[in-house]
Design a binder for these strands. Sequence first.
DNA 1: CGTCAAATTGACGCCGGTCAAACCGGGTGG
DNA 2: CCACCCGGTTTGACCGGCGTCAATTTGACG
Lengths: 229, 229
Amino acid sequence: MTDCLSCIVRNRAICASLRPDELLLLGRMGRRQRVSSGHTLLWEGEDAPVVANVLEGVLKLVAATADGREQIVGIVFPSDFIGRPFGKESPYSVSAISAAELCIFHRDQFDEFAADHPDLQQKLLRRTLGELDRARRWMLLLGRKSASEKVASFLLEMADRLSPPPGAADTARGFELPFGRQQIADILGLTIETTSRQLTKMRADGLIDLPSRRKIVINDLAALNEMAG
Amino acid sequence: MTDCLSCIVRNRAICASLRPDELLLLGRMGRRQRVSSGHTLLWEGEDAPVVANVLEGVLKLVAATADGREQIVGIVFPSDFIGRPFGKESPYSVSAISAAELCIFHRDQFDEFAADHPDLQQKLLRRTLGELDRARRWMLLLGRKSASEKVASFLLEMADRLSPPPGAADTARGFELPFGRQQIADILGLTIETTSRQLTKMRADGLIDLPSRRKIVINDLAALNEMAG
DNA sequence: CGTCAAATTGACGCCGGTCAAACCGGGTGG
DNA sequence: CCACCCGGTTTGACCGGCGTCAATTTGACG
């Protein structure tokens, strides 16, 4: 049985709204599962029988055109929720981009449980409203920003979401992306070449350092903010 | 006092979840308001003290860059809900693009009411999840589709959302857009010139007719679907 | 040190943006 | 009824940013 009380995301996931006895009930419905990097949980357009909380790792939500062009439409971090309550099929696919651990529920069981627990449903509503806001800000980026503005905006958002908490051991500024270049391109609606060129130019201009393939160090936050448009 | 029982959107708006006595309570909190085309209800980044149901008319949600480029990030039709429950400021502005009638609530009063009415909150959650799905499909369009694919996708979506119900009086195929060319461009992340050129080309190719500035008649649905990518 | 995928760099072309001019339709006033 | 006006739209000419294709370099790992 799943031990929810000691769960790493106990206080951050939607479960935080539940009392211990309710948590026990939900825990009985859930099942922990490890998935390896690259594994696809839900397929675009297919029936989506499960929802889940993310305990560890990072996943991407991907929409694709008929001829295979891909756009990443969401990034899922630990304590985030995935799947589509109250809907049969997923409008995008969900894949792990790192090894991940999930807490999985059958969708209809979860829906039923949620209907009986308004606080859980409110947490889910708050989260969904936040995701919607984020998606809409991203639409501005995709529709109206230039390549350099896109990359600058991306770095700022990632610095915000990924920077280690201020008191962390590594005093080294900077953060490690969970993405490769192609995935950054798929997030920004660019090609991998354009993405790479923009990053190289920013390094040449001294705005950032790129100490390894996936590490980013921001040298000039103000200039980056300016550039983000 | 607002008479909710006879409201035009009684059965389609989130209020549909309420019993007559609950509706009476909510009705006391609400206030009907007409706004004229062009009026902006909420400003991007400013405090958003109200939420509302749309009874009549069409509104747009707009995000903008510092230098004035605009992207429409949502379109709001009758029975849709606007505003940001559980959040102080609006991440985008909301403006009427036709004369409109709204049913307005103070945000914190509404939040409180919603917390006590799980069915209302569930309706709101379902709606928000639907909006999120729509926003994400639009991200694919903005990030990865060509101008012709964008315009074709737009026409199909509008045909779907705006076509008169099958048994309507006007047997004339087609529909009337609530947008001008500039607004279509702002929806698609294009310029007005590119949008205009694509529409003209589609007419030249016989895919559509443009009987007046805002009317669209689709002649070849299959070809349009093909073109949408 | 060898291997291989990922990333970078370069050369080139095209789609869609920019700027400018012409056109259209609907409303107003003579 | 018609001339005029004016915002919205269309059309044209031009050009630059970003995509495409291809070659090279890098760095992680055995």
